[in-house]
Design a binder for these strands. Structure first.
Length: 430
RNA sequence: CGGAGCGUAGCGCAGCCUGGUAGCGCAUCAGUCUGGGGGACUGGGGGUCGUGGGUUCGAAUCCCGCCGCUCCGACCA
């Protein structure tokens, strides 16, 4: 993309309503625009990040054996009456009436709908297990939306639902998802820690929340430094991995256990703040039973499949990542989800040699680099690139250009390299 | 849902108390200079002052209603 032609409306001044750093930076970087309380439009930069996160989530869900579907945002009230949650959910549910006076709602989650779909489709235990998932917008009419996309009313969520023959199978699905989640967060480039959790609205008896460590998190978290050494992407034994994740100490302040905490050696104790970006539940036959989703078992008898559900707040992750990865100058995107691999900074727009070299480099990246071709001074371009947080800045000025040299800056560390063009490009491509 | 505020140019704000020509900075447009950390100068454009009513000769300003948004607290992917 050429910056001069992109819809990236950056701001020098911080809009008054933004209190938290990720919200300020998202507005200043032109990633989102607020359209109503807790409702955001995603502009190109934000949309790119959202899409990159979603793609990693998708790849890891697929790898865990889940299968992508796409359910609607609007649901029928009748579906929710079946589970009994239509009344139970309360004012957080956005209720809608159509022209025929039929009662609809904007889905806050999809347990009912997916259970109804499975009920229509799955008749035999031979067709289990199944883990359908989708990445779709949800709406929860929060009492007080705040912190930008961290607590919006409309948000993008990946939700998966597991259906198994028995509890044992459901626990296997649960463990697979635990691994998939840890792999997902690791690939994205953030530290997330699974913590035992309450099951809340969804119900059930086994649940973990995943918290991204960030100084501005809403919950206090306590954990054993052993988590920092974990490597989910190279874990091969799910059982061992799950065992490790669930035995190392980690708790939010609500569930903090001082007795257990005191047994951890002082040098391994870590206290911080966390932002919840995912939660997984095992809840047995709560919904299959309520909605009469029965399947014929090996013995010819009907049984209710054992279920779990697994959510990742995709749009919330964008905010959480910024909370965890920024400095005074702006955002510092992890490589895997950066909207662009690099910014190309033309420091002398209009100088034939510089322009030509910039164009050549830009062409070699296609859509993966943002070319700052504006008529701006060097300082403005540096500041803008730092704000937008590209992992690399390829800085091209007239002095270097005549010798085929460019300067490379690594956003995260501030390191700079003077390199011949090809070497610089190779470094950016990793 | 309790409490507190705020709506004036794209953004940040002043003006309101004490009614009388709607202002400042940034951004934007044109031009000149400048050219490695948000540069300078000159000139220009941009406003139903959230909205409806009331008081008044006259309302951004005073009064009432409504709408929107934010913050603090209780609740939550």
């Amino acid at each position: 993309m050429r910056l001069s032609k992109s819809l990236i409306p950056t701001l020098k001044e911080t809009p008054a309503e933004a209190q938290i750093v990720s919200h300020r930076l998202m507005l200043r970087a032109g990633m989102v625009r607020q359209m109503a309380s807790g409702i955001y439009a995603w502009l190109p930069l934000g949309q790119r990040v959202l899409a990159k996160i979603a793609q990693i989530v998708r790849e890891e869900q697929d790898a865990a054996g889940a299968e992508e579907v796409l359910m609607p945002t609007i649901q029928s009230a009748d579906l929710w009456r079946e589970s009994g949650r239509y009344d139970a959910y309360g004012k957080e549910m956005l209720r809608i009436t159509d022209r025929h006076e039929r009662e609809l709602l904007f889905g806050p989650t999809n347990e009912e709908m997916i259970t109804a779909i499975m009920r229509d489709s799955i008749k035999s235990y031979r067709e289990l297990p199944q883990i359908p998932y989708h990445i779709q917008w949800k709406f929860r009419d929060e009492v007080r939306p705040r912190f930008g996309v961290l607590r919006g009313r409309e948000f993008l969520m990946k939700d998966a639902y597991s259906f198994d023959l028995d509890r044992e199978g459901a626990v296997v699905a649960y463990k697979k998802m635990m691994l998939a989640y840890m792999r997902t967060f690791q690939r994205i480039g953030i530290t997330a820690i699974p913590m035992r959790a309450d099951t809340g609205q969804i119900g059930g008896d086994l649940s973990h929340e995943f918290h991204v460590l960030a100084p501005t998190g809403e919950s206090g978290v306590f954990y054993d430094a052993a988590f920092e050494a974990g490597d989910a992407t190279s874990a091969t034994d799910i059982e061992a991995f799950y065992e490790q994740m669930t035995t190392i100490y980690a708790a939010t302040d609500e569930k903090h256990d001082l007795a257990a905490w005191d047994k951890i050696p002082a040098e391994r104790k870590r206290e911080g703040r966390g932002i919840e970006v995912g939660q997984i539940f095992y809840f047995g036959t709560k919904y299959s039973e309520a909605m009469n989703f029965a399947v014929t078992g090996p013995d010819g008898q009907k049984f209710f499949p054992e279920m779990g559900s697994y959510g990742i707040g995709v749009s919330r992750l964008v905010g959480a990542i910024i909370e965890a990865k920024h400095d005074e100058a702006g955002i510092i995107w992890p490589d895997a989800i950066a909207p662009f691999k690099a910014a190309i900074l033309n420091l002398r727009q209009g100088d034939a040699t510089t322009d030509a070299l910039c164009e050549k480099i830009y062409a070699s990246f296609g859509n993966e680099a943002l070319y700052d071709d504006r008529e701006e001074r060097a300082g403005a371009k540096f500041a803008e690139a730092d704000l937008l947080g590209h992992p690399w800045q390829i800085i091209i000025g007239p002095r270097g250009a005549v010798n085929g040299m460019v300067e490379l800056k690594r956003r995260a560390t501030g390191e700079r390299f003077e390199l011949p063009v090809e070497e610089a490009l190779a470094k950016v491509r990793g």
